[in-house]
Every structure is written in C-alpha cells, then in structure tokens.
C-alpha cells in the first residue's frame, strides 16, 4: 500500500453461513483508495458493493482481511467514516437543522454548538430557510442534500455514499451531481461512491472499480483522466464515451446499450 492511501482494504472477504452452505458475498478484495480522491464502485446487484461499505463502516465484520484507515487498523470499529445509506433516513421528528447535526451530537458536541456550526453550511449548500422545517416538507432532492450534509458534518475524512441519487428524477439527479462535486471540492474529503449508473460514475470519479457477482469481487480498475472541472457537455466527448463503453463492456453489456447497468 502506498503512502497517500486513505482507505485500504486488505484481502477483505465476507462469507455468510446459510442453510444451503456458505455464501460468498465478497471474495477476497484488495482496494486502495488514495486520499482526497473520488472513487466509484460499479457492478450488478449482489456484487458486494454494499457489503464493502458495511465492512468499512464497521457494521459487518469481514470473515477475513483488514480495513486500514490512514494505515491504522480500523476493522470492525464504528464511527470512523461517514456513511450515507441509500435512503436519506432523516428523522421525521427532528428539524432539518437537528437532523444535520446528528453526527456531531452522537459524537458528544453540545447541541447549541453543533447548531451554530451547521447553520452556515445549510445556508451555503442550498438549505437556507429550511433549518426549522421538518423533513416531511422537503422535496426528494432537498432531503438528499440534508442527508449528505449530515454525513459531511460528521467530520470524518472518508465518506461512503451508497447510491445517494438512485431514487431521484434525471433532472434533479444532474443538479445533485454538480452540487456533490462542488461540496467535494470545498471539503476535500475522500469519497467512495456506489452507483448503478455508469455515466454517473464516469462523470463524477477519479477512479472506477468495476465489480462482478458470484462471488462479489473487483474485476477492473479504470482511472478516469478527464480534466476537472468537468462541464456537462463532457458526456459527449470521445474520451468520456470510450470510458463509458469500457465500463459497460466489463459489466457484460453491449457497448450501444443505455447507461443503466442495473
């Protein structure tokens, strides 16, 4: 593993014992995520993307292997990384502001202090004026923003995003992607992003790891060397299309198929 490695998975495998014998959710996977990079994992359903996240977040013990954060063994410890699950999981009885400070609150920051810390971020990242509303009053895009801010303000260097935009309509999704890139640039965090959407992965990432199923494993690493910042029009450039086709081919799709690799 290299010196600038932020997150390192060392031969991590997960096997579940079922009635029909052992089920290999994740064959030994070794993954190096360098500091400050935007890394995507793509692959079909059941390829172990979410299992990897659960292992990194400490919610699932690996059968074998280790998780290193900044070179320190963090296997099985919780609260080390920010994890945004597919659902926004905003608590309906809390205001948007109090939802966003949840991570800090759990960590023991006094509530008043956490609120003061969070308010400017809500203003800057498009939730100004919604601080005291309840999540029920928010649109899908707004809810995802709140959930993502909660993950960011948790104050961990690594954030795991599990298909955060999967349930949004195409237009909102595009807006949220721009927004996420802005936030990523501002915060300088290391992001690991799971998606089914190949175009989304290519557009956002520095690196893409392509996964395959039965057993879940990583089959390819594709660096995305498109210059940043990336305008929307990048999706029609030959370089982008070539990367997208390479990913689709690895996922076992004909090159002319649409980007949904679900």
């Amino acid at each position: 593993m290299s010196a600038d490695s932020k997150l390192y998975l060392e031969d991590v495998s997960v096997t579940f014992q079922t009635a029909d014998g052992p089920f290999h959710a994740l064959a030994p996977v070794t993954l190096n995520i360098p500091r400050g990079r935007f890394v995507s994992l793509i692959g079909p359903s059941g390829c172990g993307k979410s299992t990897i996240f659960n292992v990194v977040a400490g919610l699932q013990s690996p059968t074998r292997g280790r998780v290193l954060i900044d070179g320190i063994d963090a296997t099985g410890s919780i609260g080390q990384v920010g994890y945004m699950l597919q659902k926004d999981l905003l608590l309906p009885w809390r205001t948007v502001l109090d939802n966003v400070i949840l991570g800090m609150e759990v960590r023991g920051v006094p509530v008043a202090e956490a609120r003061d810390h969070a308010r400017p971020y809500l203003q800057r990242y498009g939730l100004g004026g919604f601080e005291n509303r309840h999540p029920g009053a928010l649109s899908g895009g707004m809810r995802q923003r709140a959930a993502l801010l909660r993950t960011l303000l948790f104050d961990s260097d690594v954030i795991l995003l599990d298909e955060p935009f999967g349930a949004l309509d195409a237009q909102t999704k595009a807006q949220m992607q721009e927004w996420l890139l802005k936030i990523w640039t501002d915060f300088g965090k290391t992001v690991v992003f799971v998606t089914h959407d190949v175009e989304e992965a290519v557009y956002l990432s520095d690196d893409i790891h392509v996964m395959a199923t039965r057993p879940g494993r990583v089959i390819a690493h594709i660096p995305v060397d498109l210059p940043r910042p990336r305008p929307r029009s990048v999706v029609t450039t030959p370089g982008f299309v070539a990367l997208k086709q390479r990913c689709l081919a690895l996922l076992g799709h004909p090159a002319d198929e649409e980007s949904e690799a679900a």
């Binding site: 400490g58 919610l59 919780i78 699950l85 759990v106 960590r107």
Partner: peptide, 14 residues
Amino acid sequence: VDQDGERLFYSLGA
C-alpha cells in the same frame, strides 16, 4: 423501528 435507521446511528459511532 427502521433497521437502516439503527445502521445509520451505529455508523456514526453511537
């Protein structure tokens, strides 16, 4: 109680 809600809390180190 939403199991994912519990997972969220534990991922925050609760």
